[in-house]
């Protein structure tokens, strides 16, 4: 920490930027490859077909369920990988983006929340509910 504090903010910023991009790359590249292969084998299509009725309430294709699940439980980066790998309209990207920015990384951020002395579970539940409501509203009003 003290070493970092001495450094100039430009160096620190570039370092953080490289770290962020590296963290992103570690998630995004394998996931875009995996999803692309799943698409080719038809597995993604099967999953998408199963999720279609539910996702259509949000104005989203079935594949988008994957973006929401990995976004909710892992992080925004993995949801970005799914967005990159599937075909979406601007409206659909906006719906997923709104839902995912509101609710993501529930385990990690739940732990952060708990450190401040409040209960993490009710907050996580609230995020999921608000996220779904927001998705419905954006789909309706966009």
């Amino acid at each position: 920490m003290s070493v970092e504090a001495i450094q100039n903010p430009w160096v620190r910023g570039l370092k953080n930027g490289i770290n962020t991009v590296w963290e992103l790359a570690k998630v995004v590249i394998p996931l875009t490859i995996l999803i692309s292969v799943l698409k080719e084998t038809g597995l993604l299509g099967t999953l998408a077909g199963k999720m279609e009725p539910l996702m259509s309430l949000l104005g989203l294709p079935g594949e988008a369920a994957l973006a929401l699940v990995v976004g909710y439980f892992v992080n925004i980066y993995s949801a970005i990988a799914v967005i990159l790998a599937i075909e979406l309209t601007a409206k659909q990207v906006t719906i997923i983006a709104v839902m995912i920015t509101i609710c993501h990384g529930l385990f990690l951020e739940g732990a952060i929340t708990q450190k401040t002395g409040v209960k993490a579970f009710p907050l996580a539940l609230m995020r999921v509910v608000v996220s779904i409501l927001a998705g419905l509203v954006v789909n309706w009003l966009y």
Partner: peptide
Amino acid sequence: LVVMGASLSWL
């Protein structure tokens, strides 16, 4: 997410 094509104002 704006880079991904989402609307800035909506977000």
